[in-house]
Computed example of a mutant assay.
Amino acid sequence: MLAAILYDLDGTIVNTDPLHYQVWREMLQKYGIEIDEEFYKNHMSGRLNPQIVRDFMPEWSTEAIYEFSDRKEARFREVAGHLKPLPGVYDAITWGTERGLKQALVTNAPRANAEYMLEVLQLSTAFDRVVISAEVGIPKPDPAPYEYILKEFGITPGEALAFEDSPSGMRSAVAAGIKTVGIATTQEPGELYELGAALVISDYTDSRLWKLLEPHH
């Protein structure tokens, strides 16, 4: 029986990746580092900022890495005010609310970003919990963030459904034993199926999603 729906944020509720890519590109260029979309998709999407910065700047102190990460996210928030949620997101969240399901956001994004994006998308009150990987202590792709929310909600993996778009997010949810729907905003559907997605859709208007949810009406 379905008891909870768990959503990732970036690329899952809202397609922030093109904007994150632009901001990373702009900031790394100042250090003579060039990235393209393919590199971003394969090596950066869905990962924690400090991990990414350390890959590029292994000689930097932890303090410098966090300072750069904070600047990068501040810049992102400056330019993200116009973003819109993926089609059908409101319907999916409303569907869960009407059925009394618990709903949570489980993200590798920093809390300031998550709260800002929920405000922009008018979803500030949509979730029972907002789980920030860095606060749990172990980020995706480790299953820890998902295991944390299952424990918080007092449910088994079989009672949850997750939505994810990135390889790290898919690995995290699948490793936690949760049935996961892939959102193909940042990756090819085939890649998400390979990582264990039960279904891959481009957005929440896909009739196959509603067929999947139907038994829980």
Rank of each mutant, 00 (worst) to 15 (best):
Q187A: 14
T180R: 04
G196Q: 03
A197P: 02
L19C: 09
F163M: 05
N113Y: 09
E37Y: 15
G196H: 04
Y40N: 00
L105T: 04
L161N: 01
V181K: 10
G96L: 04
K72V: 11
Q51P: 09
K30E: 15
K179C: 14
I52H: 07
A173F: 00
D17E: 15
G137M: 06
V200D: 03
R99Y: 00
G100A: 03
Y193T: 02
F39R: 15
P145F: 10
A175K: 05
Y116T: 06
L105K: 05
T156V: 12
M44R: 09
A64M: 11
L6I: 06
K72E: 12
V200K: 03
E188D: 14
I183H: 00
V106R: 06
V174G: 06
W60H: 03
V106W: 06
I201M: 06
L105S: 05
Q22G: 04
G158S: 09
G169W: 07
L2P: 01
I132V: 12
V130A: 06
T186Q: 14
R25T: 13
P167R: 12
G190F: 09
K179D: 15
R54H: 14
E159T: 06
H43A: 12
A144K: 04
I5S: 02
F127V: 08
L121K: 02
L28M: 01
V14S: 05
T180H: 02
Q51V: 15
P18F: 06
F127Y: 10
Q22Y: 10
D203C: 05
P50D: 10
I178W: 08
S69V: 08
Y146D: 08
A198S: 10
L123E: 00
K72F: 11
V53W: 09
L213S: 01
M27V: 02
F127E: 08
E164S: 07
V79R: 14
G177Y: 03
Q187I: 11
Q22E: 13
Y148K: 07
F163E: 01
F153A: 02
E67P: 09
H216D: 11
V181I: 13
S61L: 08
S172D: 03
S202Q: 14
A197N: 02
